[in-house]
Amino acid sequence: MKITFPEGPVEYDTEELALTFVAVADSVPVDCAITAEALEDRFGARSLREPDLRQAFHRNRDAIEAAAARLIEETDGKPVMLHSGYLRMYGAGRR
């Protein structure tokens, strides 16, 4: 499966408390998200405030996209939500 992450907006989802972004898997868009908790716990966001979450996301974008790509492969192209537990299991981020 060929997975890419086109330049595009990263949105803050206030209902899910997550940042959302899009991947493309074999030419099909795949919705991706990472929880605020994961950004704080695994990628050093200073708080759950949107600016702090965005800063942690952009500072660690390569690692986040790599984790999302791995999960997209595992779920055969389904939308993904990255949580702290998944990232911890695969060693993504700190701690």
Rank of each mutant, 00 (worst) to 15 (best):
C32K: 05
T20F: 04
D52W: 05
I64R: 00
T4A: 05
P29L: 10
S47R: 05
P79Y: 15
P51Q: 06
L19I: 00
L71A: 01
V24H: 05
D41N: 13
P79H: 07
V30G: 03
G77S: 08
E7D: 09
R70H: 08
G8D: 04
G44F: 04
V24Q: 09
R61D: 10
L17N: 06
D26Q: 02
R95H: 11
L87S: 00
D52K: 02
A63D: 13
S47F: 03
G77M: 13
F57R: 01
D41T: 10
A56S: 13
D76G: 01
M81E: 10
V28N: 10
D41I: 04
F43T: 04
R49Q: 13
L48E: 14
M81K: 08
V22E: 14
I72E: 12
L39R: 06
V80C: 03
R46H: 11
P9F: 08
R95Q: 14
R42W: 02
T75D: 12
H58G: 15
Q55N: 09
R46N: 12
R61F: 04
M81Y: 05
G85E: 14
V10D: 00
T75Y: 03
Q55H: 15
D62T: 15
T4S: 12
A69F: 07
L71F: 07
A23W: 09
G85C: 06
G93V: 03
A38C: 12
D26M: 03
E15V: 02
E7W: 00
A66G: 03
I72M: 10
A92E: 13
Q55T: 07
V22S: 08
I64E: 11
S84R: 07
